[in-house]
Design a protein around this nucleic acid. Structure first.
Lengths: 232, 232
DNA sequence: GGCGCTCTTTGCGCCGGCGCAACTCCATCG
DNA sequence: CGATGGAGTTGCGCCGGCGCAAAGAGCGCC
């Protein structure tokens, strides 16, 4: 019983070019769920019995090492498919998905995936492209991690977040969901201490404006310079 | 004019379950090419006008930063598809593929991909799983890079190489293609100096045996211990 | 409205691993 | 068979950023 209207999701790339009737049919099979802020959509290691599309909100995908360290894999924006473990033949989720604000997701049982793909070959193509672009992202990240200084990595991460989920305000571009220094540290492979120091320094130079779980970019252009290693 | 026989490639996962006639048809469209040691199959930034399957040999996929630093993305083993840029909607190759030994590849023009997928939906599924597992690899690597010491990362890298392309010898498991300290450094995000120091130390402890572009694991079990942080 | 918790800031000291440089060792090629 | 250059080894010194610690600030909950 999805309370989600077709018009809400028709524009999502996954459903691009799908006839309205087919889309309605798919939505009928979907379960829609609300996840309050800071609750998990699924946890790393659980059986992968569903895949998801984010309708409203923001979801953080994170991965934990055996000894408990966390890294943030990515932030999911509305319209994106996530938890694609079933599509890539994983039986268990390789990461944890947590709603960072109140969020609404559509969920389909894993068993539906092969059937959907058979009926709508474009879904396979679309999924392939999504996973492909995430692979690109991941490789870019590996490159940054191995070749760039921490400060540049943090700049890159903030610019990427702003691009993906930035909201224009009077003073600049604010990241549209709560994000802590710890989160940024886990995205960039450093410690919250170092992130805090870097952001403090930038704040003094007027490049960013901080706050509790809040980051706004005041001077994206200068930040881009830092990200590219052309610091002044 | 592919000089490649069906039986050579029938076992490759990409073609799993494909009728012999269809496979023959696909092979007819393929161009087979020999790439001598240390020559490029394709270069980063070139238009992605083909995708490939490795038949014999070993191919290194590497990526360069704008300022010329290299990282090794992965080593391709026989039977694997690579250069999948066309399948994930990239117009240019994001990395360079270099034969590290004399190698034989099959190549299909990019334009063939959509047609193949339409005729053989299992190819899309297979490609999705391949890209998915590479995504997993990449995330694992990001995790290792951010949470593990250099020595552990090197141990992990060697174990992975041995698993993927190890050849049992009298003394242990030898990596089946020429690989330099520099290559290992570019896989693990460190410098060849550090890799050299680490391997020298291990050689003295009898864990590995080195040589010019040669690495053999004499005591994989102890190496695994190091990789997991349980060093003695 | 006040308490407590989480998030953040900042100081201090240390060290793993990088940068640099010099030297050795082989493999290949003419 | 000697020359050449790529690959590997190793010493030395430095420093970016982590670990630890402790205090300060803002938010949410009761």
């Amino acid at each position: 019983m999805a309370a989600i209207d077709r018009t809400t999701v028709a524009a999502f790339p996954l459903f691009a070019g799908m006839p309205a009737a087919d889309l309605d049919e798919m939505l009928r099979e979907a379960r829609s769920a609300h996840h309050p802020k800071n609750t998990a959509v699924f946890e790393q290691g659980e059986p992968a019995d569903a895949f998801f599309v984010l309708v409203h909100g923001h979801v953080r995908a994170s991965k934990a090492t055996p000894d408990g360290q966390q890294i943030v894999v990515r932030y999911v924006s509305p319209g994106e498919i996530f938890g694609v473990a079933p599509a890539i033949a994983l039986t268990h989720y390789p990461a944890t998905a947590t709603a960072v604000v109140d969020s609404v997701v559509l969920a389909w049982p894993s068993s539906a995936w092969p059937r959907f793909v058979a009926h709508h070959p474009t879904m396979a193509t679309s999924a392939l492209q999504t996973v492909g672009s995430r692979l690109q992202e991941a490789h870019t990240r590996v490159m940054e991690m191995t070749t760039e200084q921490v400060e540049r990595r943090v700049a890159h991460a903030l610019l990427r977040l702003a691009k993906q989920s930035g909201r224009k305000t009077a003073e600049g571009i604010e990241i549209d969901f709560p994000i802590s220094r710890q989160d940024v540290a886990e995205m960039t492979g450093t410690t919250l201490h170092t992130v805090s120091r870097i952001l403090s320094a930038w704040e003094q130079r007027g490049l960013v404006s901080g706050g509790r779980q809040r980051i706004a970019l005041l001077d994206p252009h200068k930040l881009f310079g830092i990200a590219e290693g052309k610091d002044g």
